[in-house]
């Protein structure tokens, strides 16, 4: 009689698979089904970078970028940007943070040709010198559709009102980081 593995339900003929007359092709069907399922599952983190230097004083600038990343067709992703920050003065200032796609050919600091993913994703209000803040990561979903999409990703801070600049923190103890997570097949 055949043993059955607990995970895939594969049959293991006593005589050995290759030469067993009892062997029929169900195993291959099961392996194939599992391979297809595994291919659709989340692959987890597919890109990560951490930064250990502060930004300069940002008014409307690209703070960080990923020069090129290929999002594979028919999959879902999350792009995450996590940073602490502090303002340079004590005026009442409002900033928007966003994650954008941009053409590969564009210089990293260009602010044209940007397409904000999920719009302006976070507003930061700064009104006095209060030390460093942390608001939690910004997370935007991205699904490339039926074809692979290779794009530049730009993480932007944009002042909307006020007179202050914003400095994005990075040091050995408090890294600024961005990463891309594969969530699995697009549904």
């Amino acid at each position: 009689m055949a043993d059955v593995t607990t995970f895939l339900g594969l049959e293991k003929p006593i005589g050995g698979e290759a030469h067993s007359r009892a062997m029929i092709n169900r195993n291959y069907d099961r392996v194939e089904a599992f391979a297809i399922l595994a291919d659709k599952m989340a692959k987890g983190k597919v890109f990560e970078k951490s930064v250990t230097g502060n930004s300069g004083t940002v008014v409307d600038d690209v703070v960080d970028n990923i020069p090129s990343f290929t999002f594979k067709a028919n999959r879902r992703y999350e792009i995450i940007w996590d940073t602490s920050y502090y303002g340079t003065g004590n005026s009442d200032s409002l900033f928007y943070l966003s994650v954008n796609t941009a053409p590969l050919a564009d210089a990293a600091n260009l602010l044209t040709n940007l397409t904000a993913i999920e719009g302006r994703t976070r507003a930061l209000n700064w009104y006095s010198l209060q030390g460093t803040h942390h608001y939690g990561p910004i997370v935007v979903p991205y699904a490339p559709g039926a074809s692979d999409v290779t794009t530049q990703i730009k993480f932007r801070c944009q002042r909307v009102t006020g007179d202050d600049g914003m400095i994005f923190v990075g040091n050995a103890n408090e890294k600024r980081f961005y990463k891309i997570i594969d969530l699995g097949a697009q549904i």
């Binding site: 930004s55 300069g56 004083t57 600038d61 703070v63 970028n65 020069p67 990293a108 600091n109 530049q152």
Partner: peptide, 30 residues
């Protein structure tokens, strides 16, 4: 708060990656 040193955008010409460097660090690359 750490001592404030202004940093500037510097783009790696090989990789098009953005860095924020001090003026001294930028001068050292030129």
């Amino acid at each position: 708060m750490e001592e404030f040193v202004e940093r500037f955008q510097w783009i790696d010409p090989q990789t098009n990656e953005l860095f924020w460097l001090t003026q001294a660090e930028i001068d050292a690359k030129d």
